[in-house]
């Protein structure tokens, strides 16, 4: 299974990953054609160019869901993307992309396949810092509620009390040594309240649902720009609530200024922007994919004639 995602990115797969016989009969990609395509010098040159643009998108990123998302979220995301890219709507050019979506959906919806897949991408997930963004956000169990729980990780001392009382809601981030909300209302209300009350430093807060995304985004450590060896490292706002307020203000100002001042400096990417970017990347990749496909076809025919 380890290579199951490789053929999905024909323009960037390294040659080493295409050793003979290592493609899996279970994968539904036309790896043999992709393999041939790779041999063409024309494609090779596209490969390097496209390679710099491409992102390490796994099935989770393809569907735009977090790694711990449940079946309902995956389904929802899958349907949303299908509505955009299904050939019935997007025309024939949506074919390749929809195939990817179907494959991703099939794997992620089946518990056993998903586990296997998680193992195969596990290392990748740990290494790439970008993915931590996805991991930092909590998911919801059951319907949305107006309030959500949020751990101020700055204040958290890592006592594990909350994890002990409501283990389906809170998790311990061993790397950072603090607790975090994994699933909103993953346990019953009583257990969650006990957790909140038992926190010795009162770092678990009830916040508005609308605020949650911003808070969870800001609390994640961001890479700090450094000067030489100085000032590098990870940082996060010391008062996350104040930061959220100013962040929202900034956001409002940005949307106001968007028309007139295009060059407004964007300090940080909002979740909405991130999503937009992901969609745009997908589109670019998709177009690229079809052009390369046509090119490859032409080239192959041409070579055959020779």
């Amino acid at each position: 299974m380890s290579l199951s995602m490789a053929p999905a990115y024909p323009f960037s797969v390294t040659k080493a990953s295409h050793i003979h016989g290592c493609f899996n009969p279970n994968t539904s990609f036309l790896s043999l054609i992709l393999r041939w395509r790779q041999r063409c010098p024309v494609i090779r040159c596209c490969t390097t160019r496209a390679g710099s643009v491409r992102t390490d998108k796994n099935y989770y990123e393809l569907l735009g869901v977090s790694v711990d998302s449940d079946a309902r979220e995956i389904k929802e995301a899958y349907r949303k993307l299908q509505k955009k890219y299904h050939p019935d709507i997007a025309g024939q050019k949506g074919h390749e992309y929809t195939l990817l979506l179907n494959e991703a959906y099939k794997i992620l919806m089946r518990e056993d396949l998903r586990k296997e897949y998680d193992v195969s991408i596990g290392q990748l997930r740990m290494r790439s810092g970008r993915n931590n963004n996805v991991m930092g956000f909590s998911s919801w169990k059951g319907p949305f509620r107006p309030e959500a729980v949020f751990v101020d990780e700055n204040a958290c001392i890592g006592c594990r009390e909350c994890v002990h009382h409501a283990s389906n809601t809170f998790v311990m981030d061993e790397a950072l040594g603090c607790a975090r909300v994994k699933v909103q209302f993953g346990d019953n209300d009583q257990n969650i309240q006990v957790s909140v009350d038992s926190c010795p430093v009162n770092c678990i807060h009830w916040v508005d649902k609308e605020e949650l995304a911003v808070l969870e985004f800001l609390i994640q450590p961001k890479l700090k720009e450094g000067y030489g060896v100085f000032g590098q490292g990870w940082e996060r706002p010391s008062n996350v609530f104040a930061a959220a307020k100013s962040f929202n203000k900034q956001l409002k100002r940005q949307t106001r200024n968007f028309g007139s001042n295009v060059q407004a400096t964007v300090e940080e990417e909002t979740p909405a922007q991130a999503e937009a970017r992901v969609t745009a990347t997908m589109k670019i990749n998709m177009e690229k994919f079809s052009t390369i496909w046509n090119l490859a076809k032409k080239f192959l025919w041409f070579r055959n004639v020779e």
Binding site: H20, G21, L32, I33, R35, W36, Q38, R39, N304
Partner: peptide, 14 residues
């Protein structure tokens, strides 16, 4: 299409 072990090249057009 046909491939032979040890080679990546297809032996004939697919």
């Amino acid at each position: 299409g046909v491939t032979m072990p040890g080679t990546e090249l297809p032996v004939a057009p697919f």
